[in-house]
Design a protein around this nucleic acid. Structure first.
Lengths: 181, 181
DNA sequence: TATTGATATACAAATATTTGCATATGCAAG
DNA sequence: CTTGCATATGCAAATATTTGTATATCAATA
């Protein structure tokens, strides 16, 4: 159950509502962990039930009311326990790589098309990450400790996307040598 | 439902039993898609029920009997349909990157330890991939079309692990500048 | 001959995740 | 004044995945 821990991690810095969390999972945390709002709202209530989080309703003007959650002492303890425990590495599941194994057995055209799409998406992410780095992480060593881990995930993302760009180019070259079925 | 498609992809080249498939998912295919034997056996029966696969029992001497599966015409059609459809990119979920966001909020020592573990594991994979490349994929352009996609996944894996190695070194440097809590 | 390890399959329960739907407020643009 | 968009939360059902357990064959080895 790591979604709960991802949520608690986000709550380390500030209290958030489900909606705000969902947005996090669309951006920063979402760079390497995605979750739908349904999952988040459900998980939040479950965690509040376990006293890992405390909830309070907040009246808003101009917007629907929201429920703000904060990490409790018990939640923090559970989180620390989890950080302490070494987890097993699980390879990412990637549809596209499965599809690549079909090259030579079915039409390459859609695979090339999907490759283009992925390269574009990766380029967009790369640009975004670089913008974030320029804005907030120019001097990693001078960062407060609480930001160093975040920076490292960003750095990983940047390198990941850079090598993805190169790989996509190489993959395209090779896939173009595949005869039509 | 992509596990079924990963299974059919493996069955493109040759008929396999559940046990043999499980081993595949521990190695080649498993580099980017993992599945437990429980899941595989269950999925195989489900797919046979949909007539995507045909099953036949094979008597063996010296070993328990096994059930061999082959891809049917309908299965191949379903697979082609899936290859044709563009899937959305879903970021990999990675516990460790969530843990990194906890740096500065809890003890770094276990995070550094986990980093070491990951680097070692990554190094082992890198060596394995390189051995495979040396043995089977020295001349990518001369490969039969059916092997080109497989090669590309291997290449991605190699680059992935190479950059992971560098990143782990950089991460360790920076994490060492974090004060104990 | 008792144990271990590899081969081979399977059930059941618990969790996690995705998909589809439902509801409601308030702003802005047409 | 109605449509669409962003905010905000939720239920229910279907799928997928993990975890734990169970069974059985045969080979090697201690």
């Amino acid at each position: 159950m790591a979604l709960s821990h991802a949520i608690m991690t986000a709550l380390l810095e500030e209290d958030l509502s489900g909606y705000e969390l969902a947005k996090r999972f669309d951006t920063s945390l979402g760079f390497f962990w995605c979750a739908s709002h349904q999952q988040i709202y459900q998980e939040l209530r479950k965690m509040a039930g376990k006293d890992w989080l405390s909830a309070r309703s907040v009246e808003q003007s101009g917007k629907p009311n929201k429920v703000m959650y904060s990490l409790t002492k018990q939640g923090k303890e559970a989180l620390d326990q989890w950080v302490l425990a070494t987890g097993k590495v699980q390879p990412a599941k990637d549809d596209f790589l499965v599809k690549l194994h079909n090259v030579g057995h079915s039409d390459v055209a859609p695979i090339l098309a999907e490759l283009d799409g992925r390269q574009e998406a990766s380029k967009a992410r790369l640009d975004l990450y670089k913008r974030i780095r320029r804005k907030h992480y120019t001097k990693p060593k001078l960062l407060p400790d609480t930001q160093k881990g975040v920076y490292l995930t960003l750095l990983l993302g940047i390198r990941q996307e850079e090598h993805t760009q190169r790989w996509c180019d190489d993959a395209r070259s090779l896939l173009r040598t595949v005869r039509a079925i």
